[in-house]
Computed example of a mutant assay.
Amino acid sequence: MTRLHLHLLSDSTGETLENVAKAGLAQFEGVEAVKHFWPMVRSEGHLDRVLTEIAAKPGLVIYTLVNSTVRRRLESRCHAMGLHAVSALDPVIGALSRLLGKETISRPGGQHALDAAYFDRVEAIHYTIAHDDGIDAHEWEEADIVLAGVSRSSKTPTSIYLANRGYRVANIPLVVESPPPPNLFTLQKPLVVGLTTSADRLIQIRRNRLLSLNEKAETAYVDQDRVTRELAYARRMFSDHGWPTIDVTRRSIEETAAAIINLVTERREKLPARA
């Protein structure tokens, strides 16, 4: 096991750095990373105090600092100590600057500004939680996406993931004996997406669900013939109404969400531009 001290310096909350560090470390096995978080570093005096701690526990330094004086001091001191200092966002920001032909605004914590997009994301999460499992169908027209599928076809976790990306999502379980609300078939604004899976995979997931609830393992809920009929009923509905369908059998939640986002983007690109 390789042990590594990882110093994450930010002039904001450090959330971006934490995500970058997690993604990077996930690519290596046998590494024990000791993370040291140093948020809101915006002055040379504050930086000097942090550098004293770094010198005591040397390791890799990753930073997001927009103040040029503080950045140069950090880089110079790390070089003198023989430590690697890496700017997490410079390559991306540099590429964007060249492509857009614009200079950066150099605003500390700019990526976390509480702008309209931030509040839209919070509202999307609230909406999605309030419209889980078929609740408040009369408000579905306000959604960006409506997910439909049989029970345990990953509708809720996919909805929550999409909400964290800023999409207002409702979802509806499809039950053979209980047809969905009629307005599901007349929605105009939201994109309705059908989620399906293989019968064997669905039965496995449902059995695990029953075990977690201490319910008996053999019920109609996991009967092979019944599950096959449920899936056929859902697929027929998807086809009859021309809804795009995603098979989640071998997809992670992230992969399913990415496919849905691509569908939403393609749909928006086809819509006529507003005057």
Rank of each mutant, 00 (worst) to 15 (best):
P190Q: 03
L191N: 08
V192S: 04
V192G: 09
V192Q: 04
V193N: 07
G194K: 09
G194A: 08
G194L: 07
G194W: 07
L195E: 14
L195Q: 11
L195A: 11
L195Y: 11
L195S: 04
L195V: 10
L195M: 14
T196R: 12
A199M: 04
A199L: 06
D200G: 13
R201Y: 03
R201F: 02
R201D: 03
L202Q: 01
L202F: 02
L202E: 00
I203W: 01
Q204L: 10
I205A: 05
R206D: 10
R206Y: 09
R207G: 09
R207L: 12
R207Y: 09
N208L: 12
R209A: 12
R209M: 13
R209H: 14
L210G: 15
S212I: 15
S212R: 15
L213D: 15
L213H: 15
N214K: 15
N214L: 14
E215H: 14
A217R: 10
E218H: 05
E218A: 04
E218C: 04
E218G: 02
T219I: 01
T219L: 03
A220S: 06
Y221I: 00
Y221Q: 02
Y221T: 00
V222A: 00
D223G: 02
D223P: 00
Q224G: 04
D225E: 11
D225Q: 06
R226S: 04
T228K: 03
T228G: 01
R229P: 01
E230Q: 02
E230S: 02
L231G: 03
L231W: 06
A232Q: 08
A232Y: 09
Y233M: 01
A234D: 08
A234P: 08
R235C: 13
R235A: 14
R236Q: 14
R236K: 12
M237F: 05
M237D: 05
M237S: 09
F238E: 11
S239K: 13
D240N: 12
D240R: 12
D240G: 10
D240H: 12
H241D: 05
G242N: 07
G242A: 12
G242V: 05
W243Y: 09
W243P: 08
W243M: 08
P244H: 04
P244Q: 03
P244V: 05
P244A: 10
P244E: 02
P244S: 07
P244N: 05
T245P: 05
T245Q: 09
I246T: 00
I246R: 01
I246H: 00
D247W: 05
V248H: 08
V248M: 07
R250M: 06
R250C: 11
R250S: 14
R250E: 13
R250T: 11
R251L: 10
S252G: 05
I253Q: 08
I253A: 03
I253G: 07
I253Y: 07
E254S: 10
E255H: 02
E255S: 04
E255M: 02
T256M: 05
A257R: 01
A259V: 09
I260H: 05
I260Q: 05
I260W: 06
I261E: 10
I261L: 06
N262S: 02
L263F: 03
V264K: 00
V264F: 00
T265I: 06
E266T: 12
R267C: 06
R267Y: 14
R267A: 11
R267I: 08
R268D: 14
E269G: 14
E269L: 15
E269C: 11
L271Y: 12
L271A: 11
L271W: 11
L271I: 12
